[in-house]
Computed example of a mutant assay.
Amino acid sequence: MANTRHFRTIFLSDVHLGSKAARTDLLLDFLRHHEADTIILVGDIVDGWRLKRSWHWPQGCNDVVQKLLRKARKGTRIVYIPGNHDEFLRDFPGSHFGGIEVAERLIHEAGDGKRYLVLHGDEFDVVVRNARLLAYLGDWAYDAAIVINIGLSAIRRRLGMPYWSFSAWAKLQVKQAVNFIGEFQRVVADEARRNNVDGVICGHIHHAVMEDMDGIHYINTGDWVESCTAVAEHQDGTMEMIEWHGLVTVPAPSPVPAEILNDMKAA
């Protein structure tokens, strides 16, 4: 396919298949335009928590699963590291499903010889580890933010405005207030030091970033609910953060409904 890029390794996390917020359309588009020798799924690919509450599995979820299985059949090595939302797979370390390996965590050696600890990261989230009920309550609040996000996104599209995630913004304000992100990054980097590696690649907190933390290269892959990001390793070991909103140019905005124009005039 034209415009296809090939990498040594691609890292994806927090797709949340089964959630109404999962951007399966963008992920499928990303997978069509990006190939890799190895794809590592860094947890929360399937959202078992939401599926337990109410079953939601549209065709887009099937399409993502089939796309990954097709890549595995064609020779791509795919490793699935479960997270807290798909923790049911943690009972099957070392198993293979359709050519996809399941592992609790792994050490990835990059093309430049650097070694990275790869894990989802929920074991370092105090809320998830010590207070499961609070974690579920937080998950429900997150669902509410996603519903608001869908409505705002629809309005912004009609107005010809670029995508902006209310849920990501709201979450970031709360996390900053309690210094959660910084503390999470610190403890994950400490775990990398205990494992005598050069860096760590994780997901879980939906906050895509690559930065050095006192000698540890900390990488968070982000998610496919808000940021739509992946981390790709080039053949020389260089890591690249990719934010994917498709190759298709944004169409001209459709006419703004009269009621929205009236609301804007009244504001």
Rank of each mutant, 00 (worst) to 15 (best):
D63A: 12
D63Q: 09
D63V: 01
V64G: 11
V64P: 14
V64Q: 05
V65Q: 10
Q66Y: 07
Q66G: 12
K67R: 09
L68V: 00
L68D: 10
L69D: 02
K71R: 14
A72E: 04
A72R: 11
R73M: 01
R73L: 04
G75I: 04
G75W: 00
R77G: 11
Y80A: 00
Y80D: 02
I81H: 02
P82F: 01
P82A: 07
G83W: 03
N84K: 05
N84P: 07
D86P: 15
D86M: 07
D86E: 01
E87F: 11
E87V: 04
E87L: 11
F88T: 09
D91W: 08
D91S: 11
P93W: 08
P93V: 06
S95W: 08
H96I: 10
H96V: 08
H96P: 00
F97I: 08
F97G: 03
I100C: 06
E101M: 09
V102G: 02
E104H: 12
E104L: 06
E104F: 02
R105N: 03
R105D: 12
L106P: 04
L106C: 05
I107R: 08
I107Y: 01
H108K: 02
E109D: 07
A110D: 13
D112N: 13
D112E: 13
R115A: 08
L117M: 11
L119N: 12
H120Y: 05
D122W: 13
E123L: 14
F124R: 03
F124P: 13
D125K: 04
D125M: 04
D125R: 10
V126E: 15
